[in-house]
């Protein structure tokens, strides 16, 4: 046996048990590392390089330095989509987390039909975004198709343009996005609430704490890790919002993200630059910016959570 294992085998035989364990661990780790290097890190590095070129898919990429970044700085559409993206985040994060907590907090106390209600809240999360988007798109139509305008006219209010307005379109797109986010957030919040030891509540009750005080002093601090986790995930999700905007504002023959770019998030502008205008370098430069923003936000949130 020993003769057939050769030089490598001899080397392995000479290791201590601890070293052998390490070798085994690295062997198992090698597969995901190679996989990640190939499908994650290499394309990411490639995107950094592409952002310095004028690649149009057809011809070989030519190096143009920081021209794509300079163009971004003076491109009014870039700043508009940046503003839209931050607006999606600024509205979507507090609204969705607030609602999800409120629902989870009360759902936690419901004993009858708890599982059924929880499942109902979870359903939007597993529904395809495109299906959600199209149903909501019909809700927003003018009469006779649109449900919301139908209701408005019945109660004697004027019709609203919703998706055909530069001011109402973004919130109108955000509502179904939040709705589909809720399911996941509620389930995570519920798990967090269940994880708080019952004894804390009992102790507080004995000390005579009111329900508001219990919420502030026990429930919320204990939920902090859950909250940070959901904050990071929701922030990343909202900054990368794409499918629901694409399906709710595109579809026809007009480019998605309208009217007048008022609903266009950064990821959609990246997509358009890359696959409609074929300006791969410009698109890559925007992804680099998005990457840096996501990195910064995640760092900050992790730092906050450690406190």
């Amino acid at each position: 046996m020993a003769q057939s294992s050769g030089f490598g085998g001899a080397l392995y035989e000479g290791l201590t048990i601890g070293q052998k364990r390490a070798v085994t661990a690295w062997l198992f780790l090698a597969l995901p590392i190679v996989f990640y290097a190939l499908v994650r890190f290499y394309p990411t590095a490639q995107a950094f390089w592409l952002s310095l070129t004028n690649w149009n898919l057809l011809t070989a990429p030519g190096f143009i330095g920081l021209a794509n970044y300079q163009r971004m700085m003076v491109d009014p559409v870039f700043w508009q989509v940046m503003g839209n993206t931050l607006l999606y985040l600024a509205l979507g994060l507090p609204l969705s987390l607030g609602l999800a907590f409120l629902i989870a907090y009360h759902l936690d106390r419901v004993r009858v039909g708890h599982a059924v209600i929880r499942a109902l809240y979870f359903i939007p999360h597993i529904t395809t975004a495109v299906a959600i988007a199209w149903v909501w798109r019909w809700f927003y139509q003018p009469v006779p198709v649109g449900l919301f305008n139908e209701v408005l006219t019945v109660v004697g209010l004027p019709q609203q343009p919703f998706l055909r307005s530069t001011t109402q379109a973004l919130p109108a797109v955000l509502v179904p996005a939040i709705w589909s986010l809720l399911g996941f957030q509620i389930v995570i919040f519920l798990a967090g609430l269940r994880a708080i030891p019952q004894s804390y509540y009992e102790a507080a009750a004995i000390d005579g704490a009111g329900s508001w005080q219990i919420l502030r002093e026990i429930t919320l601090p204990q939920l902090m890790p859950t909250l940070v986790f959901l904050c990071v995930l929701t922030t990343i999700g909202l900054l990368r919002i794409f499918d629901i905007v694409y399906a709710m504002t595109g579809g026809g023959r007009a480019a998605p993200g309208g009217p007048l770019n008022s609903t266009k998030p950064l990821v959609l502008y990246i997509y358009e630059s890359a696959f409609s205008s074929f300006e791969m370098g410009f698109a890559a430069a925007q992804t680099v910016v998005l990457f840096l923003i996501l990195l910064a936000i995640t760092m900050i949130q992790l730092k906050v959570s450690k406190k």
């Binding site: 307005s165 530069t166 480019a255 309208g258 009217p259 007048l260 205008s277």
Partner: peptide, 19 residues
């Protein structure tokens, strides 16, 4: 870039009617 040039006309009408 036909798509982008068409979009400019779509935006033109939106500017008149919406903005």
């Amino acid at each position: 870039d036909e798509t982008a040039q068409r979009q400019i006309m779509i935006d033109f009408v939106d500017r008149l009617k919406i903005a």
